[in-house]
Nucleic acid binder design. Structure first.
Lengths: 161, 161
DNA sequence: GTCATATTGACAGCATGATGTCAATATGTA
DNA sequence: TACATATTGACATCATGCTGTCAATATGAC
């Protein structure tokens, strides 16, 4: 019977976890948009900038890597090119599918974003510490979240890198 | 120096937490959309149905409770009414602001959704358990996530209930 | 009772995710 | 080589969040 009781309590925590993860993800999203907004960017553009900074990747490759639909990334990439943050460089391997490369302007923007994010991470760490979170607990939480992601994947729900 | 080292390690976990929370939230979203989709609904409609099921609430009140913009909830509510899942009932307190009430059809849909979600929660709990998560760790993760939400709120990033 | 202020719903428009379809292009196999 | 299949970008369209503006309506201070 012990196992049954344990399982029941466990299952009842799931809806709470779902709600809290949504809540925290929403707060993180606002936070990230705030950081990106300070540089006149958005999170979507930031993600594509970051993934494209490696260079030598087509839009379709970036989309797969980011876990978004190809067309969504295509639109964001086109906007980045329009704004001069990136450019299309011809791809020897595929005449119709150029590589997305950052321009100097785009590289600068990404560097600014990275620096701003680092500052904000420190601030959030301080706030979390003040809220009573310690490193051990945070590490446990991370482990649980990753295991939940793994569990979701076994059920066929893709997760995004 | 101990405190400094601890803080540094802590701050470095933050970006990992952000990435993993995004990832898990994305998986949960897909999962929820799947559940809602089986009944021909969406998560947005589900949320509004659920919040409206209490009865006696205006669209603006629902929006505040859900943490969404008033206009977003308005649109979803209008769609629910169009589809016969809800109806507007005159509000004595405000001539222009009716209460959103579920119809029998809407109540049935919500009951179906709730039942389906319960089943899915059990399945996910089993998968998580198999992935090696135990109740104690899950509870710790929940606590950390809530403390992070609280920390975010102190920084002015609203979280959604 | 009056009037400034806040709230509300309607409407228009934007951002960013999704999907579906089509033609051009690679790719792998017979 | 030839052809079936997969991949890719372009384009259209939808879903669902946001914002801003306006008029109607409550609300509260005086």
């Amino acid at each position: 019977m012990q196992k049954k009781v344990k399982t029941r309590g466990f299952a009842e925590l799931i809806p709470l976890l779902v709600a809290d993860v949504y809540q925290l993800a929403g707060a993180f999203r606002q936070w990230g948009d705030g950081i990106a907004g300070e540089v006149g960017q958005t999170q979507a553009r930031w993600q594509v900038l970051s993934a494209a900074s490696v260079g030598g990747r087509t839009v379709a490759q970036l989309a797969r890597r980011l876990g978004y639909a190809r067309q969504s990334v295509q639109r964001t990439a086109d906007l980045l090119v329009t704004d001069g943050l990136a450019k299309y460089a011809s791809n020897m391997d595929h005449r119709k599918s150029p590589h997305l490369e950052l321009t100097q302007h785009g590289d600068d923007a990404l560097k600014t974003l990275t620096a701003a994010a680092g500052q904000e991470h420190k601030k959030l760490a301080a706030a979390a510490s003040a809220a009573g979170v310690n490193t051990t607990e945070l590490q446990t939480a991370l482990d649980v979240i990753r295991q939940m992601c793994a569990a979701m994947e076994t059920k066929g729900f893709a997760t995004r890198p």
